[in-house]
């Protein structure tokens, strides 16, 4: 095994989830790194859409923000912000919404707004929603990439910034949300998917060198484990080489 960090395994696993030829609405940070890795490895025709209005961006380095000039220079089209949300995201044209989270709960709801206290007197004020609520609502499916810890993986988020599966299967349909919501959560320890019956996030894959107890210890609810638990294939040398080159050029 080539030695690599848990973050690298997470980013590689997240990049592999993106299929070539699909379109992906990319959040900044971990999702953007993984999406750019995918485009440089197995998915050269992955269409990257950033909320700054850059459609089909092909950056030659990792953008620090969602509005970096390199995105506009390399995009198939640059449109205004009202257009990217109204014409491109809202009608359900985008295959995958790729998001991060400060807090994620057992049913895949995302919080990036406030932690602790109440909304008007929070213990920690986070940046807020950005494009995420509508990305989570309108993309055909949503992938979340987030480091796993009991602080981040909670039974119930303090604030629902972006709706996942509410408190269980059927809630999205009842609310009329068009997309399937979170179908995949990739962490630095493994991969979780919503249970087909209940919608509860369930451990379906372990990263190399990680055991179920490690994941349980980093989860703030009683984690269910799939009977068909898989092992994530180790990152290849090529994946790591490309990822490290991206990070270094940042």
């Amino acid at each position: 095994m080539s030695t690599c960090t848990a973050d690298e395994t997470m980013t590689v696993a997240a990049s592999r989830a993106l299929r070539d030829g699909t379109s992906c609405f990319v959040g900044i940070g971990l999702p953007s790194t993984a999406a750019n890795l995918a485009r440089r490895t197995h998915a050269p025709d992955l269409v990257l859409i950033y909320e700054s209005g850059t459609l089909g961006a092909k950056p030659d380095r990792l953008p620090l923000s969602i509005g970096d000039g390199v995105l506009a220079e390399t995009a198939d089209a640059v449109v205004g912000v009202p257009e990217v949300f109204n014409y491109w995201l809202q009608p359900g044209r985008v295959d995958v919404g790729f998001l991060g989270a400060a807090q994620l709960d057992r049913f895949g709801n995302i919080n990036t707004t406030v932690i602790g206290g109440d909304y008007h007197h929070p213990e920690v004020r986070l940046p807020g929603a950005g494009g995420a609520p509508e990305i989570a609502a309108s993309c055909r499916e949503v992938f979340v990439v987030v480091r796993q810890s009991t602080r981040a993986f909670v039974d119930r988020v303090d604030f629902v910034t972006s709706f996942g599966h509410g408190r269980g299967r059927g809630e999205r349909e009842a609310l009329g949300l068009p997309g399937a919501g979170p179908t995949l959560v990739i962490t630095d320890l493994g991969v979780l998917r919503p249970d087909p019956e209940t919608g509860e996030l369930t451990l379906t894959e372990l990263h190399p060198g990680v055991e179920v107890d490690d994941v349980r210890a980093a989860t703030g609810w009683e984690l269910r484990v799939s009977p068909d638990l898989d092992r994530t294939p180790e990152p290849t040398q090529q994946e790591l080489t490309v990822l490290r080159a991206l990070e270094e050029a940042r």
């Binding site: 949300f85 109204n86 809202q90 707004t113 909304y119 929603a129 609520p133 509508e134 609502a137 309108s138 604030f159 629902v160 910034t161 972006s162 709706f163 509410g166 809630e171 999205r172 609310l175 009329g176 949300l177 068009p178």
Partner: peptide
């Protein structure tokens, strides 16, 4: 718009 559905 179609937005904010289900959110706090």
């Amino acid at each position: 718009l179609r937005g904010y559905t289900g959110t706090d």
